[in-house]
Design a protein around this nucleic acid. Structure first.
Lengths: 142, 142
DNA sequence: TCCTGGTCGTTGGTAGGACCAACGATAGCC
DNA sequence: GGCTATCGTTGGTCCTACCAACGACCAGGA
C-alpha cells in the first residue's frame, strides 16, 4: 500500500493498524480453537463472578444483554455452561460454568497468552512494559 | 464494568480499548463534518496520486474495490470528485479531485489533526513520541 | 485472427463487534 | 392493587472489512 501522507503516521492510524494486527492474531487463534472473543469473555466472567444472571454477565463484560443470549446459546450447546431458572426470581436464569467449561477456559486462557506473546514479539521486555503503561493511560476508565 | 482478571491488562485488550476510544473520537469528529473515514482516505489518496483509476485508489488505500465504488458515489454526489471514462482503457474510470474536493480535504485534515490532539491529550510530548515509536514497530508493513 | 488469462467497475452477500427498541413476564415498592 | 423497573428474548441497525461473481474490456501467444 502506498504510504498516504495525510493518513499514515497519525496516531489514530497507527493505533488502528496495531490493533488490527493484534485482533487478527487473536481472532485467528480463537477461531482455530472454535470460539470467538465473546465466548471467552463470558466464561471468564462466569468463573470470576460465580453463578449469576445473564444481566449480571452482561454488565460484567460490557456485552449487550441481547448478545449474551446468543453466546450462551452456543456455550450451552457445547456443554460449557448451563442455564437454570432462578428459584428466587423467576425473571432470571442462573448461569453456571460446567466442569468442561472450566477446563475449556484454562485452555483458551493459554491460547490467549500465546497471542500476547505473538503481538508483542517485536518489542523488548522494557518496551512492552512502557507500551502497556501508556496504553492504559489512553484507554477509558482505567 | 467489573475488572475481568483474565481479560483486562492483556495487551490485546488494552490495544482494543485505546483504539476504540481513538476511533470513537475520530468517527464523532468526521460525522460532525458529514463524512466517514473512507471518504477522507480516498480523497487523501486522490490528492497524492493525482487522477487515477478506482482500482489504483483501492490499492493505495487498502480499501476493497467494491467499497471504493460506494464511497466514490458519495463523493461524486457531493461534487468533491468526478469520474470520467478513461479513453486509453475503456474498462477504467479516471477519478479526479475537484476544487471543492481539494478544499474539503484541507478542512478535514484539520479536523483529523484536532482528533490526534484529543486522543493523545493524557500524554506528555515525550510519552507521545515513545508511544508512536512503539506502535510503529507493532503495526504490520512498517 | 481467435483464444486465453487477467483487469476493470459493479452488484450483492457475509462476518463480527457493537448497539437499540420493544415485548411479555415478573419483582419490589408505595 | 398499581406503578415502575428489571429479566430474558426477539429482531432489527450500523460500520468496517472482506469475498465471489458478473459483463466488459485489454494484452499476450498460437
Amino acid at each position: 500500500m502506498t504510504t498516504l501522507r495525510r493518513v499514515a503516521d497519525r496516531p489514530t492510524w497507527l493505533l488502528s493498524r496495531a490493533n488490527a494486527r493484534a485482533q487478527g492474531l487473536l481472532a485467528e487463534a480463537f477461531a482455530a480453537a472454535g470460539v470467538r472473543g465473546y465466548h471467552f469473555r463470558l466464561m471468564a466472567a462466569l468463573e470470576q463472578l460465580g453463578p449469576c444472571s445473564q444481566a449480571d454477565l452482561g454488565r460484567a463484560t460490557a456485552i449487550d444483554r441481547s448478545d449474551v443470549v446468543a453466546v450462551l446459546d452456543d456455550l450451552d450447546a457445547w456443554g460449557l455452561t448451563r442455564r437454570k431458572p432462578d428459584p428466587a426470581d423467576r425473571r432470571r436464569n442462573v448461569v453456571l460454568l460446567t466442569e468442561d467449561g472450566a477446563a475449556r477456559l484454562e485452555e483458551l486462557d493459554a491460547v490467549l497468552g500465546g497471542v500476547q506473546e505473538a503481538v508483542l514479539e517485536p518489542l523488548s521486555a522494557a518496551e512492552r512494559a512502557t507500551l502497556l503503561r501508556l496504553l492504559r493511560r489512553l484507554a477509558p476508565e482505567g
